[in-house]
């Protein structure tokens, strides 16, 4: 653990230890959130209210076993909300990445009328957010009948976004020689893309997919607006908390929190390395 310190000057060692100590405090505080949630999910409702910081007197597993029965919001049971979450996060993230990568590939490797414009537009769009369009967007969704429907996921087929820039940069730097070789062998453009180019972008695709998935798995704001009748788990939890007026089950609330947190935690611990190393913006000046 302290190997990295060996070759350093004493002042530097001191600095590193100090930094590490500060980091430790933050790290512990983050772990405490999960620990507190877990602990609360194993207490009774009354214990959570009266002694929010004490350990459970008896482990109360009923918060988990009764969760399917108690935790339901706007006609959506736990299973239904889980389905909504998976649908909007997995299908949504996949559609978005699928559309974006093809779009970026096409713009970086092919010339067609307007292909250079697209890059400029995306660059402006990502650096210049337009404010106050929430009302117009809500009306649009309403008029298209995309409120409270699974088809809402279609709105995620976006290609004009930051990830476009990542993919474009990636493909720009990717040599075209393989493609030419494949073309010699008679491959068409679809085959070149799917058999030659796409496989090379797999790590980038995967890590961007994962970040998009995570963002929408945890997303509450747009779901609360557009899909109140098809709540995903985070919105279900938020609503359950608000509607707790009529139910005294904080234990179930925190049990649900644990259930939402676990898939995200597992994915990140498993793929931490890929995520932290495969994306870069702005490049390196060497």
């Amino acid at each position: 653990m302290f190997k990295s310190l060996k070759r350093k000057a004493p002042a530097e060692k001191l600095l590193y230890c100090f930094v590490s100590l500060v980091f430790l405090l933050f790290a512990l505080s983050y772990i405490y959130i999960i620990a507190w949630t877990l602990m609360s999910s194993l207490k009774t409702h009354t214990e959570i209210v009266l002694d929010p910081f004490s350990l459970p007197k008896v482990l109360n597993w009923s918060s988990y076993s009764e969760l399917p029965e108690v935790f339901y919001v706007n006609n959506n049971g736990f299973g239904q909300m889980l389905f909504n979450s998976v649908w909007f996060s997995v299908v949504g993230a996949f559609l978005q990445q699928f559309v974006t990568i093809a779009f970026a590939y096409c713009c970086s490797k092919y010339k067609f009328p307007g292909s250079e414009w697209i890059y400029t537009i995306v660059l402006i769009m990502t650096t210049l957010p337009i404010y106050g369009t929430g009302g117009a967007t809500y009306r649009l969704y309403h008029e298209l009948g995309l409120i409270n429907t699974y088809a809402h996921v279609l709105a995620s087929c976006a290609g004009f976004n930051l990830h476009f820039l990542y993919y474009r940069a990636y493909f720009k730097n990717l040599s075209w020689t393989y493609a030419e070789a494949a073309m010699m062998d008679g491959a068409n453009h679809f085959q070149i893309y799917s058999k030659v180019m796409l496989p090379q972008a797999k790590p980038l695709f995967f890590s961007l997919f994962l970040t998009t998935w995570l963002a929408s798995w945890n997303n509450w704001s747009s779901v609360l607006l557009y899909l109140p009748k098809l709540p995903t788990l985070p919105v279900g939890i938020q609503q359950f908390n608000v509607e707790m007026i009529y139910k005294a089950r904080l234990d179930v609330l925190f049990a649900a929190c644990m259930i939402v947190a676990i898939p995200a935690l597992v994915m990140f611990i498993a793929f931490n390395k890929v995520l932290t190393t495969s994306v870069s913006v702005g490049g390196i000046k060497g």
Binding site: P68, G77, F78, G79, Q80, M81, F83, W87
Partner: peptide
Amino acid sequence: CLTGCGGG
């Protein structure tokens, strides 16, 4: 999800 749907 599949089981949940039915149950839900």
